[in-house]
Design a protein around this nucleic acid. Structure first.
Length: 303
DNA sequence: GTTGAGCGTT
């Protein structure tokens, strides 16, 4: 049989899409579903009765009406409530687009060697994807590099990749992050950061990074200095962060406790609180022995 | 002429 297409649309008066039939003249439901995800059948308005009619469906095969498919527009059936779900998914992704999550933005590049030039940056980052812009921030008077800069990519995927790893540039490890100006306090800021309590001093940032990699992309590890028995670990995905909260994890034989990273407080409150402990914690005394089970609130004081 | 956590003169 010659190639045959039937016209299918989501609603009766919408622009139809042509869907191919099989050699025997039937149409596979799976073919329809490929274009209309979630579809469970077809219906059409009968030219004679002017009523909507269902298309016969047997084991995933849609059978043509008596007089063939003709030039009618067939309307997609969705399971009860499923249509709404599809719309919600579309809405969710639309919101995501609107929030700009898919757009690229400048990334700050921290830790650049003093000698690194914009050409060096361009050459390096071009290995990840198309580069729109690079900057090396310099002292206006002397022209010396301030040791950081910015980069902007065309593709969001490139940006994601670049943020997710460290970079060896001209002999130094550098970090690429979203600048503070871009990760603004506007959003509810689903925390991508967790508080790691009961850390011991021999747990290095690198070891923490290596350990937490198993749960997802680690974007940052922060260990306060001098030693304060906790750390912050940031993930690329906020769901990874929240999924870990409340867990007790064993790292190098050390049981650490994961909890929410409270937002930073002002420096005034921080120093007041720190003062109560004198100058730090002389010996490696665990915070948990001072404030059992209160690690997360301590994060707020010292964050 | 130095430095090494940070946040961008326009």
């Amino acid at each position: 049989m010659a190639e045959l297409y039937i016209r299918v649309a989501e609603e009766e008066n919408e622009e139809p899409m042509e869907i191919p039939s099989e050699d025997d003249g039937s149409v596979l439901l799976s073919t329809v579903a490929a274009q209309f995800p979630g579809a469970c059948g077809l219906r059409f308005r009968s030219p004679v009765s002017q009523c909507m009619r269902g298309v016969r469906l047997v084991e995933g095969i849609l059978h043509a009406p008596e007089n063939g498919w003709g030039n009618l527009v067939y309307v997609v059936n969705y399971p009860k409530d499923n249509k709404r779900k599809m719309d919600e998914i579309d809405a969710a992704s639309a919101v995501k687009m609107k929030r700009g999550d898919m757009k690229t933005s400048d990334l700050i590049v921290l830790g650049l060697p003093w000698k690194t030039t914009e050409q060096d940056l361009k050459d390096y980052f071009s290995t990840f994807g198309e580069v729109i812009m690079v900057q090396v921030k310099r002292d206006v008077k002397t022209g010396n590099s301030k040791g950081f800069g910015f980069v902007r990519f065309t593709e969001y995927e490139t940006q994601d990749k670049v943020i997710s790893q460290r970079h060896m540039i001209d002999g130094r490890w550098c970090d690429c992050k979203l600048p503070n100006s871009k990760q603004g306090p506007d959003e509810p800021m689903r925390s991508r950061k967790v508080f790691v309590g009961r850390c011991t001093e021999d747990l290095s940032a690198d070891e923490l990074r290596q350990f937490f990699m198993q749960y997802g992309e680690v974007t940052d590890v922060f260990i306060p200095k001098p030693f304060r028995a906790f750390a912050f670990v940031s993930f690329a995905d906020d769901q990874v962060a929240s999924s870990l909260c409340g867990e007790d994890l064993i790292i190098k034989g050390v049981s650490v406790h994961i909890s929410n990273a409270e937002p930073k407080h002002g420096s005034r409150q921080m120093t007041e609180r720190a003062g109560r402990f004198g100058n730090g914690f002389g010996a490696q005394v665990h915070l948990s022995s001072i404030f059992p089970g209160r690690s997360s609130s301590l994060a707020a004081f010292f964050g």
